[in-house]
């Protein structure tokens, strides 16, 4: 009767999907373009940065063929900004997902325009339909450069937790080198080693805080279902891994509320139908009166 798997994606599946995210690498060896199912990878020439899928970047990192540049949002300053926004500025909602990538329009100085838009620069300022471009094409996770080095700081992409954890686990030295003081990438001396580990510790701690803050928010967001009439919670900005973790619980709560409200709902509907009938009669009576 029941499938052994819960509805939705499991953590492993989410982590697998997150490996499609693009990250920026600095190659240390030449590598020709590889023709993959998802398209060709860029040619790697040592001093030039390139955007690769996370899985390939991690593979090259393990073979010491490339260094990974951590995305801007993984910087401690960006993370603490987000935590500040989540706890102080807007303790009710989750922080916004990253905006659509935009590029300055050379013909009109001072005006930026969304990339990949099929024209119509006037839709550039509305952020509400993020991901839906004017051509009607929806660009979702792997096709938005949300985890690369030129991603905007201060926004969490959809796969933030997975990418951050994988980068910290497998490319911790690169992350520390890029974030800690910028230049000290050698990592040879004892001092830079200790400072790099402290940066890593800071990032880990901030991520931990962020996970806790947002998990608490997700839990308490169900409280809005307590009164009749309310009951829509906005999950905008929630990451894939958080969804995987809380899906069972949130679905359980919503289902429970639905069952508890079923009798009231039917009663209300019946009353409404009666009311409509009466209302209709009343109106017609009035018309007759007039």
């Amino acid at each position: 009767m029941a499938l052994p798997l819960p509805p939705g994606l499991t953590h492993a599946e989410v982590a697998f999907l997150a490996e499609m995210e693009l990250v920026t690498v600095v190659p240390r060896q030449r590598l020709d373009s590889i023709d993959l199912l998802g398209g060709k990878t860029p040619v790697l020439r040592p001093p030039h940065r390139a955007d690769l899928p996370l899985w390939l970047a991690l593979l090259l990192k393990k073979q010491r063929r490339a260094n990974i540049l951590p995305p801007a949002w993984l910087h401690p300053a960006s993370l603490s900004d987000i935590i500040h926004a989540e706890t102080k500025l807007n303790p009710e909602a989750f922080s916004e997902p990253p905006p659509r990538p935009s590029r300055a329009d050379p013909s009109r100085p001072g005006i930026a325009r969304r990339q990949h838009g099929s024209g119509g620069g006037d839709d550039g300022d509305d952020d509400d339909d993020d991901g839906v471009y004017s051509g009607g094409v929806t660009l979702s996770a792997p096709f938005r450069p949300s985890c690369t080095a030129d991603a905007p700081a201060g926004y969490l992409p959809y796969h933030w937790l997975e990418v951050a954890e994988q980068l910290l686990a497998h490319a911790g030295d690169d992350v520390a080198a890029a974030l800690g003081g910028g230049g000290g990438g050698s990592g040879g001396t004892a001092t830079s080693l200790s400072s790099s580990s402290s940066v890593l510790g800071e990032v880990r701690g901030l991520l931990r805080d962020l996970v806790e803050v947002r998990a608490a928010k997700l839990r308490s967001s169900t409280a809005a279902l307590g009164s009749f009439g309310g009951g829509v919670m906005s999950l905008r900005g929630v990451g894939a891994m958080e969804l995987a973790e809380s899906r069972g619980f949130v679905l359980g709560v919503v289902d429970g509320v639905r069952k508890l409200g079923a009798s009231v709902e039917t009663a209300r509907r019946e009353a409404e139908e009666e009311g409509m009938d009466e209302g209709g009669d009343g109106e017609s009576d009035e018309e007759m009166g007039f």
């Binding site: 279902l225 307590g226 009749f228 709560v253 508890l260 009798s263």
Partner: peptide, 12 residues
């Protein structure tokens, strides 16, 4: 219904 629903959500 109101009390039960509120109870459920709070306890959840």
């Amino acid at each position: 219904p109101e009390v039960v629903r509120n109870t459920f959500v709070t306890r959840a």
